[in-house]
């Protein structure tokens, strides 16, 4: 029986990184899932909640439950948003449907690490804080990357250190955030990788934004896009 999955694209990916969401669809369908995208979805309310606007996050949490109720699995290409749903929504008075970060879903639910991907590039991986510490995703993304054909995985020094994004932290404490970013960029550049991957477009936008400012020539690519890439239909930079 085909596994029925609802995609929670997250507002950030839906708006700024549609190629990531398209990659999730492609990947999951390739692995035999049927994927739906409920068009009523918007945002999990994380920005509001984390900035202190708890009351305004509540209706968004309710909305999430309403939209995704009835699906066996909800999959999000974001550890941070999946963490918000799983760990925080229950404290806001809702009982959200089962929601997974992409790598967890692949490894724990579908039971695959080799997804048949091909990505002939030198890649380093940044484990984002919420996927690591809120969800406990652990080494699963690395196991997935190691199984990708042609991929040269280089270890990121101090990988578990925060990149300094932190949502509105990046603007409320912009200088401190930038200092954290500087160290993260140094670690990324030290690897000599041409691609920086992660399971969260928010952190990638942050580190990538810094690398772009420096014209460092390292491209941020979401894990989903690497895993979706095959020899027949390889990843290419999308406008």
């Amino acid at each position: 029986m085909r596994v029925k999955v609802a995609l929670f694209a997250t507002c950030l990916t839906d708006t700024f990184f549609p190629s990531t969401a398209r990659a999730v669809v492609r990947l999951l369908e390739r692995l035999g899932c049927s994927v739906e995208f409920p068009l009523d979805q918007t945002c999990c309310g994380q920005m509001h909640f984390n900035t202190g606007y708890r009351e305004q996050a509540k209706p968004l949490a309710r909305k999430y439950t309403d939209v995704f109720q009835g699906y066996d699995y909800v999959v999000a290409p974001s550890g941070s948003c999946a963490g918000m749903v799983r760990e925080i929504h229950p404290t806001l008075g809702t009982a959200p449907p089962r929601t997974f970060e992409l790598a967890e879903f692949l490894v724990d639910v579908l039971g695959v690490t080799d997804v048949g991907a091909w990505f002939p590039h030198r890649v380093t991986y940044h484990p984002t804080c919420h996927s690591l510490r809120m969800l406990g995703v652990g080494d699963k993304p690395l196991a997935l990357l190691r199984a990708v054909k042609g991929l040269d995985l280089v270890e990121l020094p101090d990988s578990t250190h925060c990149c300094g994004f932190g949502g509105t932290f990046a603007v409320k404490n912009a200088e401190t955030s930038t200092a954290m970013l500087a160290d993260k960029m140094r670690c990324v550049l030290d690897t000599g990788a041409e691609v920086l991957s992660a399971g969260d477009n928010s952190c990638l936008m942050h580190i990538g934004g810094g690398l772009s400012r420096l014209r460092a020539g390292v491209r941020p690519v979401h894990l989903a896009e690497i895993l979706a890439s095959t020899e027949e239909d390889p990843w290419r930079a999308t406008p």
């Binding site: 549609p18 930038t178 942050h206 990538g208 934004g209 772009s212």
Partner: peptide
């Protein structure tokens, strides 16, 4: 401002012409 707090040290990717949901509606909807 307040976007300047971000762009003081980081670029922002250009928003795509088409959001994911627009793509979905067109191709899958």
């Amino acid at each position: 401002w307040p976007g300047s707090k971000w762009t003081s040290s980081r670029d922002v990717p250009a928003p795509p012409a088409e959001s994911f949901r627009a793509w979905w509606r067109k191709n899958r909807g």
